[in-house]
Design a binder for these strands. Structure first.
Lengths: 298, 298
DNA sequence: TCTGCCTCGTTTATGCCGTACACAGATTTG
DNA sequence: CAAATCTGTGTACGGCATAAACGAGGCAGA
């Protein structure tokens, strides 16, 4: 029954006992260190407790169970606003944007700068997952988002809300990016995990699989690509994928831009064009008002 | 040391003992049934053995270990060429394509039909993963591909090899699609797994998390999207994502098409344009020959 | 000062998991 | 016919999450 919502969203006050004894924070920090070093499957209640010098069961006085510990670790780690990594080509605009909230303050129209903003956020997620690869290993459809996860989500949504995309498309696009980053991160961890477990490097292991490669010569396309060096220095799969997906989203925005007039900018429902005068943008007075209010609020 | 390559690629002959006794095939089939019903984490050697009426350790006479069993299950399942599911919108062309091999037989130029072909293969993978959701749960970077996995890969590559994409781009694009299908499948399984484990439906569970939703009202973009019904009937995330990614690939192909002349069609290296006459397509006589040979071979 | 409760950590135990190893019966091979 | 090989069994180990009962210290009120 205890799902950890309260734990995740608790006020982060001063933990009263600074000296000895277990605290939630200490447990979470130990968990993060452990997972950084050994991956999520290397994270066991025993090991966390050992690292802190307590017995396994002592942890359960502070955390309901392993799953909730992981949730706490996740949110803790998301609060590290990963600083710029110079090794990233970041096309991020230097001007600092307001973190959240659409910026239809007149100066730029219809969120034209969505792409660099969204790209920067995707890269930030990517950087975070390279620092803590186990993040991508946290699976499940019932991960309660903590404050930091929600803030990131909010920020990503806000990049697209100024575009002509319909509400459910904004959400779908952001989810797509999110899943993409996670998928890339996952295929980044897996080699690490295998190397840890086996002690054999990836390259070495695959190199010892000659009997497999011999069979592959029977496939013409694979062989042809092999011979023309397609595997010699492969594309950076994150960069490649991100670009493709952003291009795809851009194409959709373009499409919506051209046919903008037939759907409400606020709720996405189709709207019949006005017979005379300026083309309509909202399907109803209610939507117009709502848009006005939200534009005004923040 | 036994990695299962031989097992995966063994000739599938008549298993000599038809009556009693354990066989690899029986074990693999039992494993598939179990995983279909209980997911990959519900697959244990004990349960497989029980289902067959043998002891746990008897399995190890036929399979080196759990991991290799899973690999065998994977390849077994990939041989089911999933028939058309009428619930899919399949834009697959009706004319049956040769399964493998580039088709530069003159009739169609530069693989213009790559998109429906690649899309059909992605959908086929998606169908397979809906039938056997545990497929997406098989993780790891050292999964030895069986004959069926390689055949699928070959077919996907062959759709793009006729395009102006460079070799490493062909590979990156196919990998992107593959990871996308897996990621979607993974987020399809997870709710199932949670429901199995907890006995509570997804909807019910999230519905009971009021205390979370209240906190969300503090985020303007989320609230705005919520109020305009963005979550009411969400986009089909597989369809949405697939379209975006294919659009992204299409954009890249377009780009390459326009600037085709500056890279070798065979090896992708940049090539200087011929001073006179017809623009060059290959960077060297060697590449030209290689292309000719591979065009001729199959 | 005594009493009862509350917090925190410990001890013990249950039931899963993969699989190493020694053994036994059957079957095949020399 | 004897030896070797194949197949299946039983037991055992070390790992995991966590349930339940227990004990020591602090602290409030009588």
């Amino acid at each position: 029954m205890d799902d950890g919502v309260e734990l995740l969203w608790r006020e982060r006050g001063e933990e009263s006992a600074p000296r000895a004894g277990l605290t939630l924070d200490r447990i979470v920090r130990a968990g993060i260190e452990l997972a950084d070093a050994e991956g999520l499957e290397g994270l066991s209640m025993r090991k966390v407790a050992d690292r802190l010098g307590f017995t396994t069961m002592s942890l359960y006085r502070h955390v309901p169970g392993r799953d909730q510990l992981v949730a706490l670790m996740r949110d803790a780690v998301m609060s590290e606003h990963a600083p710029e990594d110079p090794s990233d080509r970041t096309d991020e605009p230097r001007s600092d944007h307001q973190d959240a909230g659409p910026q239809e303050d007149g100066s730029d129209q219809k969120g034209a700068d969505w792409r660099p903003r969204l790209e920067a956020l995707a890269r930030q997620g990517w950087r975070l997952r390279r620092r803590h690869p186990w993040l991508a290993e946290v699976r499940g459809s019932r991960n309660i988002p903590g404050p930091n996860a929600v803030a990131t989500f909010e920020r990503m949504l806000s990049t697209l809300i100024g575009t002509p995309l319909r509400p459910h498309e904004v959400i779908a696009a952001v989810n797509l990016i999110g899943r993409f980053v996670d998928a890339e991160a996952l295929s980044l961890v897996e080699p690490l995990r295998e190397e840890r477990r086996s002690g054999v490097s990836e390259e070495e292991w695959w190199g010892a699989r000659d009997s497999l490669y011999e069979r592959l010569t029977a496939y013409p396309t694979i062989t042809r690509l092999w011979e023309s060096g397609g595997w010699d220095d492969p594309e950076d799969s994150f960069e490649f994928g991100l670009r493709r997906i952003l291009d795809g989203i851009e194409a959709l925005i373009q499409e919506r831009d051209e046919t903008r007039d037939d759907s409400c900018r606020e709720c996405g429902k189709p709207l019949e064009p006005a017979a005379t005068g300026r083309p309509r943008v909202y399907c109803s007075r209610a939507c117009q008002q709502r848009a006005y209010r939200t534009r005004k609020k923040p």
